[in-house]
Design a protein around this nucleic acid. Structure first.
Lengths: 248, 248
DNA sequence: CGATAAATTGACATCACTCAACACCGGTGG
DNA sequence: CCACCGGTGTTGAGTGATGTCAATTTATCG
């Protein structure tokens, strides 16, 4: 035992990443501590910073403490597809860190506070404490499910359905890390970002936003979303809350 | 040691699932054996059998030995989006088995040979041998990446680009389990299935198929694909081969 | 208060969907 | 042996949803 080891700081104890893990795994003091010891640095980055770049090696896991980002791909013709928006508690480097070279880019949308850990260190921990290997599996599965939902969005849902789905998903992910009220939230993304996430043009997205408002499904000023009729929204969006089983 | 334990049968040793794992993890005799011991049953199912049903509990992992399937979601308006096609070596129940209730359905496209293992048994093995927890993470990450590529397809790629991408991806996945030659393969899916995977109507998909042929990018009879100019295909499709890092 | 980013609106063109008909093939039963 | 049938692939015509482009308003930030 190392009597000099630093205690677990509050910034880690209250980390949204731990809040996310708590939904499917129980962590004791010693688990939280061993995770904390993996953290190499805490870093604050300015908005619009590139964190992962398509085509380059990336071998880290960054746990988002505060702020928002997007994972995206730029195509030959200049179009951009956003794979996923990244919220506090999400992991940057999943999946990029598991590839020889990252396939996607990640960019900060707002200023960001991150806790960074080398992937190899995390994997070593998995050998010592298998529950972290399972936790990683669960996180990756969650990623796969979120992505699956986005496939359905872009592939077969109408523009309003997509938008409704995006709003419900974002809300529920924010609630998960205690960053949204029960039926409203602050939308941290511009319409350009939402458009690129849903495969829609900005003007069309804008019209669909108005349509949801005019049909009294949502209310709220710009960048604020209040669900007036959450049930109708869920029906419209074919929304099914994502309920992961706890790790046995 | 149980001297009566059954030896590892050839059907397992040559299993495409092991072939897939081999790309990022080294398994010794004892690992292969302990995986084999998880297998509850081998099952052959007829084509068009429903394996996983949206909304119902599913708590297994099925390793596909032979045959093809699709994971999909049916929407209110009768439209169907195929999330992914499942090939030999793929796992049914990833992600469905990790949710309280499956979010998607899986249906057999051809007759299927499966090896079935309860998810809890797999997780128990992960606690004993952490490398299997990591293997599961890698599989889930692979799933997430495949899904991400499909988001880009449906969201921002033109119909020919999508199709080109689908053909290249399917080919590479078949090569991975030794089921395709270097630059040609048997397409096991109807145009209806491919259309639903790419978010296109059958007539349009059909036309795009003809276009690829007429531009001398592919050749081959119905249900056979030969890449004439693989480079041009990859450029057209923005195709990046998926190179997972081996588990450290 | 000026400058930059974001949201909104309108006109217009077009791509891809819908619907419908037809061709083809293999299997099945009379 | 042939007629029928379901599944699959192919073709054509018409239309509407959605992207593009461009202008304008509104918000945000130094």
């Amino acid at each position: 035992m190392d009597v000099l080891r630093s205690p677990i700081p509050d910034i880690w104890r209250s980390h949204p990443f731990l809040a996310r893990l708590n939904h499917f795994i129980e962590l004791n003091e010693s688990d939280i501590d061993s995770l904390w010891r993996l953290i190499e640095t805490e870093r604050v980055v300015k908005k619009r910073t590139d964190l992962v770049v398509d085509g380059y090696v990336y071998r880290k896991l960054c746990f988002i403490k505060e702020g928002f980002a997007t994972r995206y791909k730029l195509l030959r013709n200049g179009k951009r597809q956003i794979i996923n928006v990244l919220l506090p508690g999400d992991v940057i480097g999943l999946p990029g860190g598991f590839l020889e070279k990252a396939n996607y880019s990640v960019i900060a949308v707002t200023d960001l506070t991150l806790h960074i850990c080398p992937i190899d260190a995390y994997v070593q921990l998995c050998y010592k404490r298998p529950k972290f290997g399972l936790a990683l599996s669960w996180l990756a599965v969650q990623e796969a499910i979120t992505n699956a939902e986005h496939i359905i969005n872009a592939g077969r849902r109408t523009p309003t359905e997509r938008l409704a789905n995006f709003l419900l998903e974002t809300h529920s992910r924010l609630v998960m890390v205690n960053l949204a009220a029960k039926s409203s939230f602050n939308l941290p993304f511009s319409q350009e970002i939402i458009g690129d996430a849903l495969g829609l043009s900005v003007p069309h997205l804008n019209r669909m936003m108005q349509q949801l408002r005019s049909e009294k499904l949502i209310a709220g000023a710009e960048r604020v979303v209040e669900f007036i009729d959450a049930g109708a929204m869920q029906t419209l969006a074919h929304y099914q809350p994502q309920a992961l089983v706890p790790i046995p």
